[in-house]
Design a protein around this nucleic acid. Sequence first.
DNA 1: CGTGTTATTGACCAACATCAAACTTAGTGG
DNA 2: CCACTAAGTTTGATGTTGGTCAATAACACG
Lengths: 249, 249
Amino acid sequence: MTSPEMRKRELSRLVVKLRTIADLSPTAEQALLALPLRLKVFEENADIVSQGDEPSECALVVDGFACRYKVLGEGQRQIMSFHSSGDIPDLQSLHLRVMDHSLLALTPATIAFLPHGPLLALTREHPDIAAAFWRDTLIDAAVFREWLAGVGRRSARQRIAHLICELYTRMRAVGLTDGSSFELPVTQAELGDALGLSSVHVNRVMQELRRDDLIVSRGRHIAIGEWERLQAAGDFDPEYLHLREQRAA
Amino acid sequence: MTSPEMRKRELSRLVVKLRTIADLSPTAEQALLALPLRLKVFEENADIVSQGDEPSECALVVDGFACRYKVLGEGQRQIMSFHSSGDIPDLQSLHLRVMDHSLLALTPATIAFLPHGPLLALTREHPDIAAAFWRDTLIDAAVFREWLAGVGRRSARQRIAHLICELYTRMRAVGLTDGSSFELPVTQAELGDALGLSSVHVNRVMQELRRDDLIVSRGRHIAIGEWERLQAAGDFDPEYLHLREQRAA
DNA sequence: CGTGTTATTGACCAACATCAAACTTAGTGG
DNA sequence: CCACTAAGTTTGATGTTGGTCAATAACACG
């Protein structure tokens, strides 16, 4: 399960992801690929890490789709981010002892747990890895800001279009898209929890987006209808993702 | 203006702030106090840093009150954080070249600009400073998450109560409160832009909070009426602020 | 084929927005 | 000390987005 050969395969997803946001020296990449890890498979809807935990490892998403969420006082849920292969959604646990939110598998998911010790050692020995990790958490924060602006000030239609643009752009950067389409393995209720909307309203607005040919969606599969118009409908500008290269679709 | 003696006074605010979230060795503190800086005074409502800028310095709030904000497509504004003395709201610019939002002085404000070069050198030489800075940006992100949850899922009343609890707790930690009261030099329109509400609605709900004796406010001065009940009304739990010590009021 | 989950629809409702006007307050200059 | 002004707060009337509830239809999976 954790032979060096296997590790490389799992960890290469991390390297691919980090390359989209930072410059890594070949030595740094080798060092990353040599990290020890513990693989675990989670079923759909299982908590990977829970609010209140004090993790001693970080969770690298190898396969599947995950999200971070909070449950508020009256039982309402807010989803705060979505994560796919290559992401380390709880990288912040390296420096924040207690989890202030939870991490959930939205699909069956393979997670590689990377112990804090070796990760911290890596950041000490490789300044460019430290910078890449720090940058990753900073981009995380930038995405939260954008979501905050969306939920605070954008209409339901804009929010949904914006989220689709964001996910498409991010997944495209790590090679998880297929032409102008990608898998969004998320229910409308989950979209609602991410966007601060009810599932009913998400449903109605998505129908509207389909009617307007901005998207073509069947189940969990989404295809972009007209990228330019979708971007405009969502007031989307990829700047905040701070990707190293941005190419137009 | 930037004699070593003066610097210590400005930079001591930074040290006070960092102490609330991290352990700093005496040598680290000395190193921080020796940072070079450039002081500048901004008038109310002046941009300190603007979206699109590529800063070569970080802005330390020495005096006054500032916020980060974005302007969206249709001219609406979303305020994403408030900052007081000791905060470095754009610490992320150390690793993200382009500002994806702006930083504004909400009151007349004294800002100390700290050049990136010496800051980065400091993080290389003092791992505990690097950790403290990283931790600071991670707490930033944690606050964004909490705001996102609030704007997404909490009622207007809860949001306002929550924000007052947060600001009181943070300002108390750095010694900017006076008993159970503090200065909140922010208009109701600005509160609305932070909470995703209209200024009219902010007004009505604040009247309600006063009527219920949760707060006592006169102009920009706010006093907590009953801390326990205010916390309950705002569904507030300070955990997400990741302060080193939390004491009850 | 049955069963549970998700998507869709319709009727109705509430929270909050918008607009516009009046009222306070804090400065400012005479 | 008193107008005068501009900014901010408060109020009322009215409108809209999106929520809630409940039922039905469409799928997916064993």
